[in-house]
Amino acid sequence: MTDSVLRAAAPKAGKRERLADAAAQVFHEQGVEKTTIADIARAADVPVGNVYYYFKTKDQLVQAAIGAHAHTAQEIIAALEQYDAPAERLRALVRGWVDQRETVARFGCPSGTLATELDKRADGLDTELADVMRGLLDWIQAQFTAMGRDDARELAVALLAAYQGISLLTNTFRDPDMMAAEGRRLEAWIDSLA
Score class of each variant (00 low, 15 high):
residue 1 M to C: 06
residue 3 D to H: 15
residue 4 S to W: 09
residue 4 S to I: 03
residue 6 L to D: 05
residue 7 R to V: 02
residue 13 A to I: 14
residue 14 G to S: 05
residue 15 K to E: 13
residue 16 R to Q: 15
residue 16 R to P: 06
residue 17 E to L: 07
residue 17 E to F: 01
residue 19 L to V: 07
residue 25 Q to K: 02
residue 25 Q to S: 02
residue 26 V to H: 13
residue 27 F to D: 08
residue 28 H to K: 00
residue 30 Q to I: 10
residue 32 V to M: 14
residue 32 V to R: 14
residue 34 K to D: 15
residue 37 I to V: 15
residue 39 D to S: 11
residue 39 D to G: 07
residue 40 I to H: 03
residue 44 A to Q: 11
residue 45 D to F: 13
residue 46 V to Q: 03
residue 46 V to D: 02
residue 47 P to D: 11
residue 51 V to E: 14
residue 54 Y to P: 07
residue 55 F to N: 03
residue 55 F to I: 04
residue 56 K to P: 03
residue 56 K to Y: 09
residue 56 K to T: 09
residue 57 T to G: 04
residue 57 T to K: 04
residue 66 I to N: 06
residue 67 G to R: 00
residue 67 G to A: 00
residue 68 A to L: 05
residue 68 A to H: 01
residue 69 H to A: 15
residue 70 A to G: 11
residue 72 T to C: 13
residue 73 A to S: 14
residue 73 A to Q: 15
residue 75 E to A: 15
residue 78 A to S: 15
residue 79 A to K: 12
residue 79 A to T: 15
residue 80 L to C: 07
residue 83 Y to L: 11
residue 84 D to V: 08
residue 84 D to Q: 14
residue 88 E to Y: 02
residue 90 L to V: 11
residue 91 R to F: 05
residue 92 A to D: 05
residue 94 V to G: 08
residue 94 V to S: 12
residue 95 R to M: 12
residue 96 G to S: 05
residue 101 R to Q: 02
residue 102 E to F: 03
residue 103 T to P: 00
residue 104 V to W: 06
residue 106 R to L: 13
residue 107 F to R: 00
residue 107 F to P: 00
residue 108 G to V: 05
residue 108 G to L: 04
residue 109 C to F: 14
residue 113 T to L: 01
residue 114 L to I: 12
residue 114 L to N: 04
residue 115 A to N: 05
residue 116 T to N: 08
residue 117 E to L: 01
residue 118 L to S: 04
residue 118 L to N: 07
residue 118 L to Q: 06
residue 119 D to G: 11
residue 120 K to N: 00
residue 120 K to G: 02
residue 123 D to L: 07
residue 125 L to G: 04
residue 130 A to C: 07
residue 132 V to F: 14
residue 133 M to R: 15
residue 138 D to K: 08
residue 139 W to E: 01
residue 141 Q to V: 11
residue 142 A to G: 10
residue 143 Q to K: 11
residue 144 F to T: 01
residue 146 A to E: 06
residue 146 A to S: 04
residue 146 A to I: 09
residue 147 M to G: 01
residue 150 D to P: 06
residue 150 D to K: 09
residue 151 D to G: 08
residue 151 D to S: 12
residue 152 A to Y: 05
residue 154 E to S: 13
residue 155 L to C: 10
residue 156 A to P: 06
residue 157 V to D: 10
residue 157 V to N: 07
residue 158 A to W: 09
residue 160 L to E: 08
residue 161 A to T: 07
residue 162 A to E: 09
residue 167 S to E: 02
residue 167 S to M: 04
residue 167 S to N: 08
residue 173 F to V: 03
residue 173 F to Y: 12
residue 175 D to L: 00
residue 175 D to H: 01
residue 176 P to K: 09
residue 178 M to T: 02
residue 179 M to G: 02
residue 181 A to V: 10
residue 181 A to L: 06
residue 184 R to C: 03
residue 184 R to L: 12
residue 185 R to G: 00
residue 188 A to T: 04
residue 188 A to P: 00
residue 188 A to F: 05
residue 188 A to R: 11
residue 190 I to T: 13
residue 190 I to G: 12
residue 191 D to F: 07
residue 193 L to S: 06
residue 193 L to C: 11
